[in-house]
Design a protein around this nucleic acid. Structure first.
Length: 413
DNA sequence: CTTGATGATTGGTA
DNA sequence: TACCAATCATCAAG
């Protein structure tokens, strides 16, 4: 039998609603600023050039031009810039600068390359998938989660309301999760494109290697994925809270309907010598009572133990149901006989075998096969295969006292 | 509020 | 694994 799913984190009374609009980090999205950019103006990107060795006149000239570029007018500068770009030494110089850059500052960050995927993130992903939040299908996932949640104990019929409520809330969480995720992804790609464009543009005026761009993109992605982790975390939290509430609600006991109790009692008392419904019988009963099979099992478990504990207390009930069943039996048989017509104190339910207060057949005959007078809904095939085992224990300990008014039963207590 | 009824849960057993 | 026995938690009548 399945138990409740483990509820992690908040207890049922945590008092936290489904604060889905307040994911930590969601607001930070808009406040993510691009990392400090190199100034795009003329004198940017010249680091590492001051120590230019003047063993070559060309290089010296170029550097000189670069250094003085800001002193010039815009037109002049543009012209010079163009000239520089066209200079035959430009590509070589540029690549040298890139190399220097690569070997100095940036190489330090080089050490922290590709980390393995964050185990926490993996766990969150798995959980969201399992809960049907991150799954591909909108309805399917949620339904699966609900069925997983409900399979533990089954639900009373009136809990279908809670069920749909749960489904609705879960899909709400799902929707929010997906819109937020989309937002993040969009923002991430937008931001990445923006930065890449900037860097590409700057690469015309300063040494920006493709590797550097790559690294920058990786950094941005890391930042965004940490925000995403927060989103996933809070989504998980919301699902957990929802779940615990749902299960809590299920835990609240509701009495079965009168009709359901009647059906169960009918079966119980008409099989009193062996009140162990088979799987099939349980299924049938569950269907009739609109409860789950495990609820049927619970009911019979409780009933057996309580009956056994205090048989006399159930005497009246037993009589009642014996009468009822007998009535049904006689009517089905087409007999005009009424149950009372058998006379006071004499419920001679000849056709109803163990139906009557569990008095086992004295001749050791299998009581379960006296089906003639029983409700046709419980046909012979529904008898429990465990009969042989349970018969002994149940019969020996539970031969009930004779009903009031019933003469000389074979058991007295 | 008290109390008995009752559905569910849990730990143990065969 | 089904069942028992004890117990818990809630319902509902008084």
């Amino acid at each position: 039998m399945l138990q409740q799913q483990p509820i992690t984190g908040n207890g049922p009374n945590s008092g936290r609603g489904l604060a889905l609009n307040t994911h930590p980090g969601m607001h930070t999205l808009n406040s993510v600023h691009p990392p400090p950019q190199h100034r795009p103006d003329g004198d940017a990107g010249l680091e590492g050039t001051e120590n230019g060795h003047e063993n070559r006149r060309d290089i010296g000239d170029i550097l000189q031009q670069i250094m003085t570029i800001t002193d010039q007018s815009l037109d002049e500068a543009q012209a010079k810039k163009h000239a520089l770009n066209c200079h035959r030494m430009k590509p070589a110089l540029f690549s040298v600068l890139c190399e220097i850059k690569e070997k100095t500052g940036l190489s330090m960050r080089n050490t922290q390359e590709e980390e393995p995927p964050d185990p926490q993130l993996v766990r969150l992903d798995n959980m969201l998938l399992a809960e049907g939040v991150a799954g591909p299908e909108k309805g399917g996932g949620a339904a699966a989660a609900v069925s997983a949640a409900t399979s533990s104990g089954g639900m009373s019929p009136d809990s279908s309301l809670e069920h749909s409520d749960y489904k609705q809330k879960l899909s709400q969480i799902r929707t929010i999760y997906h819109t937020e995720l989309e937002k993040y992804e969009q923002a991430c790609s937008e931001f990445t494109t923006h930065v890449m464009n900037l860097l590409r543009e700057q690469s015309r005026t300063r040494p920006v290697s493709p590797r550097e761009i790559e690294r920058m993109v990786a950094i941005i992605h890391r930042k965004f994925s940490s925000i995403q982790t927060q989103l996933k975390q809070s989504t998980c939290e919301a699902v957990m809270i929802l779940r615990s509430r749902f299960l809590d609600a299920r835990r609240k006991r509701r009495n079965f309907s009168k009709q359901a109790t009647e059906v169960l009692n009918e079966y119980f008392y008409s099989h009193l010598s062996n009140p162990y419904p088979s799987e099939e019988a349980k299924e049938e009963l569950a269907k009739q009572c609109s409860i789950t099979i495990s609820q049927v099992s619970n009911w019979f478990g409780n009933k057996r133990i309580r009956y056994k504990k205090n048989i006399s207390k159930f005497q009246e009930e037993a009589n009642l149901y014996a009468m009822k069943t007998a009535m049904g039996a006689t009517q089905r048989e087409g007999s005009p006989q009424t149950p009372n017509s058998t006379g006071s104190g004499s419920f001679s339910l000849s056709g109803s075998a163990d139906l009557f207060l569990g008095v086992p057949p004295v001749n050791g005959e299998q009581p379960g096969y006296h089906m003639g007078a029983q409700d046709s809904r419980f046909s012979e095939r529904l008898y429990s295969p465990r009969e042989s085992r349970t018969n002994g224990t149940w019969q020996e300990q539970n031969t009930p006292p004779s009903p009031p008014g019933s003469e000389g039963s074979d058991n007295s207590d």
